[in-house]
Every structure is written in C-alpha cells, then in structure tokens.
C-alpha cells in the first residue's frame, strides 16, 4: 500500500514536473531574446527618458537633475524646431513618392518577361549600397558648377543650378537620392501583394471591358490596400529617422533647411556634448513618430472598416 502510494506520488511528481516543464518551456525559448530586448531596447529607452531630465555632460559623464530645463530650452530653440519641420517636410516628400512610384513601378513590372525581371533587379540594386557609397555617387552628381547636373544645365544655357546650395531645393534633392536609393523595398512589397490578387477578378472586369484605370482603381488598389498601409507606415518610420544622407550631402545646410531631427540629436550630443539635451530631443522624435505612424494607420484603416 505504502509502496503503491509512493509510486503514485513519484509518478505524480514526475507528471507535475513534466507539466511544469511544458508550462514554462516556452518561456525558455523566448528568454534569450527577452533579456536582450530588455537590456538593449527597453532599458535605454527608460534611461533616455531619465536622462532627458538631467544635465548630462557627454565627456565627463556627470549628471544633475534639472527637471524640464532641457525641454524648455528645446521649445525655444529655433534650430530644433526647424529640424522638426525639415523632418516633416522630408517625410512628406519621400513617403508619398515611395508609395506612388513604388506602386507604379510594381504595376508596370508585374509581368513574367525577362525585361521586367532585369528592371526589378535594377530598381532594387541601389538598396544594397551603403549610405556613404550612395552619397559619394550623388555628391558628384550635385556638385556645384562642375557636377553632372550643373554641367548639363550649363551646357543647356541655364547656368549652374547648384541644387544642394539652394534652400528651396536642397531637401528635395536629398529626398530624390533617398528614393533612388531605396525604392526597391516598396516596389518588391507591392509586387508581392499584386501577385496575391486572384486573377479571376481581372478576367471578370475585362469581360465587362472596364478601362484599365478603372480596374486599377476599383480592383487592384482595394485588393492591396493593406500593403499600401504597411508600406506607408514602414516608410514613415524609416524616413523620420533620416540622418546619413543629410549629414553627408548637405551637413544640415543651406541655411539650416536640411537639418533633420536625428542630425540635431547627433550634433547636440557629440558636437556640444549635451547628452541630456540630446536625450530630450530624442523623446520628442519618438513621440512625433508614434503619433505620425498611429495617425496614418488609423486614417488608412477607417475606409476599409466602414
């Protein structure tokens, strides 16, 4: 009797242990990532918030609580406010271009020909280059007086355009480089979505002899609307963080028209050694991005739901 009870108990314990294990095994799978995530994303996020309320010197590392001082200073810093507007302008210049142009290219190249395949490869190609190679290339295109564009415009009798020096055009020029560099991603995402649209809908539409524009508007775009939103959100998140192209092509000029928020953060931190100030600017960037991405998601969601 006792032995039986003992065996039962042992079996029960084993079962319980197995149950315990199967209950928690999953956690063991996700634990390594969670640790890294907490350590390298959440902890810096929180310490960044704390730092934004400190006067922190980058070089000495000394810090002192200053309340909202950094934020107050940011709110009257014309360069910071300018950088917010520059960044917004950049997002407005690039994101629609990525969505519209990406979709147009995808539509045109959504065919099984060799030519289309070659062009898909070509459009995606610059995406594998690093930002510094891209800016090296485009610097010689934009170089005032002697660059490709100015040489061309001079030959046409227009005189040098010096695009990167023109406060009205410099940011657009950087946006153009960005589109050239990374149109491949939206194009491929749209192609993937287009190929999942069932062909029979098109057949039916063609039988109704609907115009291609109508087909595009009533069938294609609604069928891939989810992807359009996804591409827009991805690009908003990416382009809000623009830094490399600006830093290397214009350095924030001319007349501060291209200084982006991330560039401001970098300069505050590493030129002026004001880590607390830079951390406060980072929080504003984070907040604006959250709002922008959320807003966009919400706006594009609405019609689909109704």
């Amino acid at each position: 009797m006792t032995t039986l009870v003992g065996v039962d108990a042992a079996r029960g314990r084993r079962a319980a242990r197995a149950g315990w294990w199967s209950r928690w095994a999953g956690l063991a799978f996700v634990a390594p990532f969670l640790v890294l995530y907490l350590w390298l994303m959440i902890y810096p996020l929180v310490s960044g918030v704390i730092m934004s309320f400190q006067y922190k010197d980058l070089l000495s590392g000394t810090s002192e609580f200053v309340g909202f001082w950094n934020y107050e200073d940011l709110s009257i810093d014309p360069i910071f406010i300018g950088s917010i507007f520059n960044t917004l302008r950049f997002v407005i210049l690039t994101v629609p271009a990525f969505v519209v142009l990406g979709l147009l290219i995808a539509l045109a190249l959504n065919r099984p020909t060799r030519g289309a395949a070659i062009m898909r490869t070509l459009f995606f190609g610059p995406h594998v280059l690093s930002v510094t190679v891209v800016t090296l290339i485009w610097k010689t295109v934009y170089l005032p007086n002697v660059g490709m564009i100015d040489a061309g415009s001079t030959a046409l009798g227009l005189g040098p355009l010096s695009i990167l020096l023109n406060p009205d055009w410099a940011l657009a020029a950087v946006a153009l480089v960005t589109v050239w560099w990374s149109i491949g991603l939206p194009m491929m995402l749209f192609l993937a979505a287009l190929q999942q649209v069932p062909q029979d809908i098109y057949e039916a539409a063609r039988l109704d002899s609907a115009s291609p524009l109508r087909i595009l508007w009533t069938i294609t775009i609604p069928s891939i609307s989810k992807m359009i939103v996804l591409v827009a959100v991805i690009e908003v998140v990416l382009q809000f963080q623009v830094f490399g192209q600006v830093n290397l092509l214009t350095g924030g000029g001319p007349n501060n028209t291209t200084r982006s928020m991330v560039m401001f953060i970098y300069q505050a931190g590493f030129q002026q050694w004001q880590a607390g100030y830079a951390a406060a600017a980072s929080q504003i960037l984070f907040a604006i991005m959250l709002v922008a991405a959320g807003l966009q998601f919400w706006v594009s969601r609405k019609p689909a739901e109704s």
Binding site: R23, G26, G48, G61, Q241, I265, G269, S282, F286
Partner: peptide, 30 residues
C-alpha cells in the same frame, strides 16, 4: 508554445517595433 503571460509578452515585444533605434542612441552610447 503555451506559457503563462505569452500573449502579454508578445504584445510587449511588438511595442518595440515602434521604438526608433536612433531615438535611444544617446543612452545606449552611455
């Protein structure tokens, strides 16, 4: 795998998709 808190943890991880890397660069550097 099922484990306690899986859903909540997954949402917690998904939130991380919204954290811009450039915005945590200063504390990360420190």
């Amino acid at each position: 795998l099922e484990f306690p808190g899986r859903r909540a943890l997954f949402v917690f991880v998904l939130i991380g998709l919204a954290i811009p890397r450039q915005a945590i660069i200063i504390p990360l550097h420190a």
